[in-house]
């Protein structure tokens, strides 16, 4: 019994010692890490390490999509097979977007979009509306330069 008590006491003090040393180690590690990080912060900000979903001037940088309701659903469902550029350059009305989704489901392995289909199509027609071009558009964005003959 006495031995038991003694060993319990030793164990208790050991435990305290372990807890204290662990705390010391943790504090040392944390402060080294903190100092290191401070140093790193002072050295350079790695742009590649930034948030992959950051938005600048209303544009989702990674994909080029306009940041508006429905963008997240569009990114998740529409960019696993093809690029966002393919979506952005296409201008269609509601009916033709639904038909395009049907085509992708029939022939390109696109899954059932459920209620996201409406959200995605609404996002697309609102943010990428059809622009009327007529039978032939004017020449635009001409960059004038002197031609030396």
């Amino acid at each position: 019994m006495k031995d038991d008590k003694l060993s319990k006491g030793i164990r208790r003090s050991y435990r305290t010692l372990i807890v204290i040393s662990a705390l010391v180690v943790a504090i040392v590690v944390a402060s080294v890490y903190y100092l290191d990080n401070r140093k790193a912060e002072l050295v350079a900000v790695e742009p590649d390490a930034e948030d992959p979903d950051r938005v600048e001037n209303g544009i989702h940088i990674r994909t080029g999509f306009i940041d508006a309701p429905g963008m997240e659903e569009t990114i998740i469902n529409c960019t696993s097979c093809h690029s966002a550029e393919l979506v952005i350059q296409n201008r269609m009305n509601k009916e033709r977007w639904h038909a395009t989704i049907d085509w992708m489901q029939e022939s390109q392995n696109l899954w059932d979009l459920g209620e996201n289909e409406e959200i995605i199509v609404n996002y697309l027609i609102k943010n990428y509306p059809v622009i009327a071009k007529g039978r032939r558009a004017e020449l635009k964005n001409i960059e004038w330069y002197d031609l030396q003959n």
Binding site: R96, T100, V130
Partner: peptide, 12 residues
Amino acid sequence: RSEFDPPAKGNQ
């Protein structure tokens, strides 16, 4: 393709 109106689907 980019010149068609209404627009046609695909790479423009």
